[in-house]
Every structure is written in C-alpha cells, then in structure tokens.
C-alpha cells in the first residue's frame, strides 16, 4: 500500500511480490487458474464425448483448415513470448519497454481474434452453427470460451497499459501486470491443447 512513495527506480526487483496484498494476489490468481484448468478440462471432456455426433452437419475433417489454425497458434505463442519480455522489462524497471511489449502482446491477441472470427464466419456459412449437432455445440462452446478469454485478456491488458501510463509502475500496478502475463500464458497453454485435441485430432479423425 505504500507504493506511491517509492520513486521511480526504487522499486524492489520483484515489485509484484513486495507487499502482502501483492503476494495474496499472485497466490489467489494461481488458485483461480487451477479452477480455470478444471473448467477447460470439463469443456474438453464434453467435447471429446460429443465430437463424433455430427448428424447431418459438416464433419471436422471437412471443416478445419490446418494452415490457418497453425497461423493462429503461432500468433498466440509469439504473443505469449512478448508478455514474457514485458515482465522481464518490468523486473528491470524499464517501463517504456514494458509498455511496448504489452502493446505487441495485445496486437497479436487481436490478430488471433480476427482470425478466429473469420474462421467461425466460414464455418457458419458452411452450415456449422451452434444448433447443428452435438459436435458443433461442444466445438463452439470450447473454442468460444477460449476466444472470450482472449478477448477479456486484450481488454484487461489494454486497461493496464492505460493505468501504467497514468500511475506509473508501482507495487500496486506491478502485480496486475504480472497476473495478466500469467493469465496470458494460461490462455496460450489452453490453446495448445485446443490445437491438438480439436484440430489435429479432428483432422486425423
């Protein structure tokens, strides 16, 4: 809570863990990600249970185009790397560099979202909507939940950039940056599973 009295440059090496509040936030957020893991685990289970129930709708083999999904994957992986650089910059107290890396992170996030929206649009045109079959319902719910997480992350990190510009890097804002980075990695890991379970396994059959 004493953040504002530290002048720039006097921040401890790991400002996110400098206060009890900060440490609580980091711990609490890890626990939250544990819950998120269960959430996505259940969504994956439902998808795996229902993925062959296509009825008259298009099948996974028919729908998925791996090159585009692979591009999405690379974009998201890169953005995750960018958020690593942002946290490194934060630990070195290089605020401007940090903001730069964060900006690249959310730009890549937006690119990913753009690709996903295009992808969903194509599917809908091919007659693959939420209502088509049990496969389509579980597909859109799983991938859509992930997409919503990406969208939330983009908005959140955007808001944090604005806060940093206004308040500077303090022991209050540092934990937020750190948490958003963990969150972003988590989303990335979930996507790797989606890429494998939904797209690769879908293509293989």
């Amino acid at each position: 809570m004493s953040a504002h009295q530290h002048a720039e440059g006097q921040l401890p090496h790991e400002p996110e863990k400098a206060t009890l509040e900060g440490r609580n936030k980091v711990l609490g957020f890890w626990i939250f990600l544990g819950a998120e893991t269960v959430l996505f685990g259940t969504l994956f289970s439902a998808f795996i249970a229902l993925r062959h129930q296509v009825l008259d709708g298009p099948t996974a083999q028919h729908l998925f185009e791996l090159p585009m999904v692979f591009a999405s994957t690379m974009i998201l992986l890169t953005s995750s790397l960018m958020s690593v650089f942002a946290v490194q910059a934060m630990h070195n107290n290089k605020v401007k560099a940090m903001i730069g890396w964060l900006l690249i992170t959310i730009l890549l996030g937006l690119a990913f979202l753009g690709l996903e929206i295009t992808e969903f649009n194509t599917y809908v045109k091919e007659g693959h909507t939420l209502k088509t079959s049990a496969f389509s319902s579980s597909f859109y719910t799983l991938v859509g939940f992930h997409g919503a997480h990406v969208a939330f992350g983009v908005l959140w990190i955007g808001l944090l950039i604005a806060q940093i510009l206004k308040k500077g890097l303090t022991v209050v804002t540092a934990p937020k940056i750190y948490l958003s980075a963990i969150y972003w990695h988590f989303i990335d890991v979930v996507w790797v599973f989606i890429f494998t379970v939904v797209y690769l396994m879908g293509k293989v059959g």
Binding site: L50, Q53, L55, T132, A134, S137, S138, T141
Partner: peptide, 11 residues
C-alpha cells in the same frame, strides 16, 4: 445447442 438432447446427438 445439443449437449444433452438425444435427438440431435447429445448425451
């Protein structure tokens, strides 16, 4: 959606 609707492939 069709998660639990047996008529449309749900379980």
């Amino acid at each position: 959606a069709n998660f639990f609707e047996p008529g449309t492939g749900g379980n």
